[in-house]
Amino acid sequence: MRSVLQLRTPEVAGNNDQRSGLTSSTPHPDASRAEAPPKLRFKDPQIEMSHGAGGKASRRLVEGLFAPLLLSSDSSERLADAAHIEIGGAIVAFTTDSFVVHPLRFPGGSIGELAVNGTVNDLAVSGAKAHSMVVTFVLEEGLASSVLEAEVRAMADALKRAGVTMVGGDTKVVERGKADGMYITTAGIGSPIHGVHVDAKTVRPGDKVLLSGPIGDHGITILLARADLDFEANLNSDTRSVLPMIEAMAAHAAPGIRWMRDPTRGGLATSLNELARDCSLSIELNEEEIPMRDEVRGACELLGLDPLHIANEGQFLAIVSPEFADIALNAIQLTAGGEEARIIGQIRKEPANTVVVNTRYGGTRIVDMLVGDPLPRIC
């Protein structure tokens, strides 16, 4: 969700300067009326793996602890992956992300490539095109230099494909056994895509739900790469930049784009439940229309997982007004990698704050956001 903030540069005041009311020896006039500390709703006794899985526990952490303390008291926005910030009259898009995937390399990608694609995608679904990034590597003592070189090369290749420049960074080394080899943190800046305004508050009944391609590839690939399972699958992570598809859609249907999200941790179910709550509407999905590979479906059935909760790293969801839905879908399908895009559902008025799925067998079921952490450390 886009958050537009006005940044103001604080003025430097001398002893007799009344512009800010602050001097070196005089207390602030409102010091005796300091704000009461915000009431926190985060009551979990300790941090668990589920707090990083993108589901209900993650939301409790963000909304119950981070948002009350870190958001300004006059802000009605919630903390999100990316924000559009006004600086000196110009709008700049900004995002940050950390990558702790295990294993570092997996079929179809690796942590270095994932770090670039994930940052580009967070900006893209906020309605912005990435231009520059900075990166921090947290390296574990004993990591083979050949492993590090491979990830830096993977990152360089992904940057080139995305047309993004790396402009700075930092490196830290921690003791052996403290970082699973390597953690990567990125921050990216970009500029808004012309005509696109992404806001859950603009979503209306009748709007269509678009999905750019098959779900679950990344999460199941990671699971199979790290688990000793008797399950063979010709499956690769879907990690990629979704920006080309979003730019193509925007070129033809920008006025109709209401909201976008890349359904990473927690999958489609969590992303759409967050939207349903933010817009106070219902989202109806048609299970038969949701593209999914047989390998993903089979693995989920074998392991008792809901594919709607499985992470993706190269797909995006979009809510588009009905008059632009077919135009937007056609634009995505004509873009390389978007051939399997589908309209998978629509927005309803009731039941509010709920995601409902029409199943392949003629019934309906309510799908909640992810509870627990069936697949932690995936991105």
Rank of each mutant, 00 (worst) to 15 (best):
L69F: 02
L69R: 15
L69M: 04
L70E: 15
L70C: 12
L70T: 07
L71G: 04
L71I: 12
S72L: 06
S72R: 14
D74P: 02
S76G: 15
S76K: 13
E77Y: 07
E77W: 05
R78H: 11
R78G: 08
R78S: 09
R78I: 12
L79D: 13
L79H: 01
L79M: 14
A80K: 08
A83I: 07
A83Q: 09
A83D: 14
H84S: 09
H84D: 02
E86C: 07
E86L: 09
E86D: 12
G88W: 03
G89L: 09
G89W: 09
I91F: 04
I91Y: 02
V92A: 08
V92S: 06
V92P: 01
F94S: 14
F94H: 12
T96R: 08
T96C: 07
S98L: 02
F99L: 09
F99H: 07
V100Q: 12
V101Y: 10
H102A: 11
L104E: 10
L104I: 14
R105F: 11
F106N: 03
F106S: 05
P107H: 09
G108F: 10
E113Y: 13
A115G: 08
V116K: 04
V116D: 05
V116I: 14
N117W: 10
G118N: 04
T119L: 05
N121P: 06
N121R: 12
L123M: 07
A124N: 05
A124S: 15
V125F: 04
V125R: 08
S126T: 14
S126D: 15
S126C: 12
G127C: 01
A128D: 05
A128F: 10
A128W: 06
K129D: 14
K129Y: 03
A130G: 11
A130I: 00
S132M: 05
S132V: 06
M133V: 15
M133P: 04
M133D: 00
V134R: 13
V134A: 06
V134P: 01
T136C: 14
F137I: 06
L139M: 06
E140C: 02
E141M: 04
E141V: 03
L143S: 06
A144E: 04
S146P: 02
V147W: 02
E149I: 11
A150G: 11
E151W: 07
V152P: 03
R153Y: 03
R153K: 05
A154E: 08
A154I: 12
A154Q: 03
M155D: 10
M155K: 10
M155V: 01
A156W: 02
D157T: 00
D157I: 00
A158R: 05
L159C: 14
L159D: 11
K160M: 12
R161M: 00
R161T: 07
A162F: 04
A162C: 15
G163K: 01
G163P: 02
G163E: 01
V164R: 01
V164W: 01
V164D: 00
T165V: 15
M166N: 13
V167Q: 11
V167G: 07
G168P: 04
G168E: 01
G168T: 06
D170W: 08
